[in-house]
Design a protein around this nucleic acid. Structure first.
Length: 426
RNA sequence: GGAGGGGUGGCUGAGCGGUCGAAAGCGGCGGUCUUGAAAACCGUUGAAGGUUUGUAGCCUUCCCAGGGUUCGAAUCCCUGCUCCUCCGCCA
């Protein structure tokens, strides 16, 4: 959520910035609503003040043993007007909040302006694009060839966009999460965290998935209205919801491995083959809670932490700065990490690292006590995948495939593979 | 699933329906004292919002959340959430 003061005092500039990311703010409607709000709020508060003073005088008169009947008659008339004003104010505020909850974050000044994916800017590359002197298979053919990756069985068990893994591939999948968790906890200073995989609406509203993106989520039946998490970002970032932390809490760095569940509604034709886009996948997520002045350095650091995973695994990648038109709803700045997939002869997203500034913090009421100012201030939140495990597995199957159909185990994973150095057909 | 008891400011913990935004203690901050520190003493110390040129004043709201009763609710009623204790069940 944006600072409401921007809407009040810098409406046009704010609308212009939002337009750069393809969002149209109805400034006339906002302005009109804001004018009404001002009027009705002042009126309501005046009435409340009057009621309070009169009620107090009744209390005093009663204590003094005076006749309170005339005072009662006077205040009685206030009731209806006050009730009506309060209701109107409540409606206006709800309307304003509904609008504000649907407004995306403002892009940071350093974000390239653009309309779509095409306008994203490559920041750097790492590693050599691999080419094979044999026919390159994609991860589906590699995995199925090994008899350890099975989409048909998954489709029978559940439906499309699921996978069954077994043997060495399943082991490598597990090894990847262990490797990533160990790397981030021991070398990058993150605290390992375990969280619920189902969350309530407040949490989803806090990080920005609700109310706007309900169709991307799996909702559970039952009275509780729980949702399956689409990313660990939701439960982990919500650790600081409704909390005022002390200064020494920050910087706070959490790493968390969870499954993620996404309905992928609206992506019907896309990536239907293989495990690039699944309803269920594992992810190791990095989350940081920092002071405002530190958040852009933190974004660089966090992105670097995710890159380290790819480097250790020897997977070629590039870093993209997303343009204004391609960024997620809550983000002020995002770097995507894209890994090289030889079968597609292109780079595919494997991590997304974002600085949300105070956008999530305002929704979350996540704040800290600044000893210098003595004031309570909003924290800044960031997160990034470090990495998406399923896609990392895909990248390894493709980049480490060998002529005989086997897959070499990357050196960094050897300690986690129980002696397995090559994945062969079972 | 059954029975019972709680949810109050950073923390602990009081609070006959009427100056209660809330006693007291702890903690924090400032000061006195001290060579310095501790102790002691004094003072201070919640958040959100509105009005406003204003970090000045004034006003509103907030004692888990949402309804209700009342001129007036932290205090009474209802619903929900949540925590604790005991019993049952269970990985």
């Amino acid at each position: 959520m944006l600072d409401p003061r921007l809407i009040r005092s810098e409406l046009e500039q704010t609308a212009a910035k939002l337009a750069s990311r393809g969002f149209t703010l109805d400034t006339a409607a906002v302005e009109a609503l804001e004018a009404r709000r001002k009027d009705v709020q002042v009126r309501t508060q005046d009435l409340q003040a009057e009621r309070n003073t009169r009620s107090k005088s009744i209390g005093k008169a009663k204590a003094a043993g005076e006749d309170i009947a005339p005072l009662m008659a006077e205040v009685g008339k206030l009731g209806d007007a006050l009730k009506a004003a309060e209701q109107e104010l409540g409606e206006i505020q709800a309307e304003m909040e509904a609008i504000m909850l649907g407004v995306p974050n403002l892009p940071h000044d350093s974000v390239p302006v653009g309309k779509s994916e095409e306008d994203n800017v490559e920041i750097r590359r790492w590693g050599e694009q691999i080419s094979f002197d044999f026919e390159t298979k994609d991860h589906v053919d590699v995995g199925e060839g090994l008899g350890q990756l099975d989409f048909d069985t998954a489709a029978k068990i559940t439906g499309s966009r699921f996978a069954v893994m077994s043997g060495g591939i399943a082991r490598m999948h597990r090894a990847l999460t262990q490797f990533m968790l160990d790397l981030h906890t021991t070398e990058h200073g993150y605290t390992e965290t375990y969280v619920p995989y189902m969350v309530n609406r407040d949490s989803l509203r806090g990080t920005g998935q609700l109310p706007k993106f309900a169709e991307d989520l799996f909702k559970l039946e039952g009275e509780q209205n729980y949702y399956l998490i689409p990313t660990a970002e939701v439960p982990v970032t919500n650790i600081v919801r409704d909390v005022i932390v002390e200064a020494d809490y920050m910087p706070r760095k959490y790493v968390c491995h969870t499954p993620c569940f996404r309905s992928e509604a609206g992506s019907y034709g896309r990536d239907t083959r293989g495990m690039i886009r699944q309803h269920q996948f594992e992810k190791v997520e990095l989350v940081q809670v920092v002071r405002a002045e530190d958040s852009y350095q933190a974004l660089e650091d966090l992105t670097g932490h995710a890159e380290t995973v790819l480097q250790r695994l020897g997977l070629p990648y590039r870093v993209m700065a997303l343009c204004t038109g391609d960024m997620g709803f809550s983000s002020a700045k995002t770097y995507d990490l894209e890994v090289w997939l030889p079968s597609q002869n292109c780079y595919r997203e494997i991590s997304s690292c974002s600085n949300f500034e105070d956008f999530q913090a305002r929704r979350l009421q996540a704040r800290w006590r600044n000893p210098e100012s003595g004031k309570v201030e909003l924290v800044h939140t960031l997160n990034g995948s470090g990495l998406a495990v399923g896609r990392t597995l895909v990248a390894i199957l493709e980049n480490y495939q060998q002529a005989d159909g086997s897959v070499k185990v990357p050196e960094a994973l050897l300690p986690y593979m129980g002696g397995l150095t090559v994945i062969n057909k079972a």
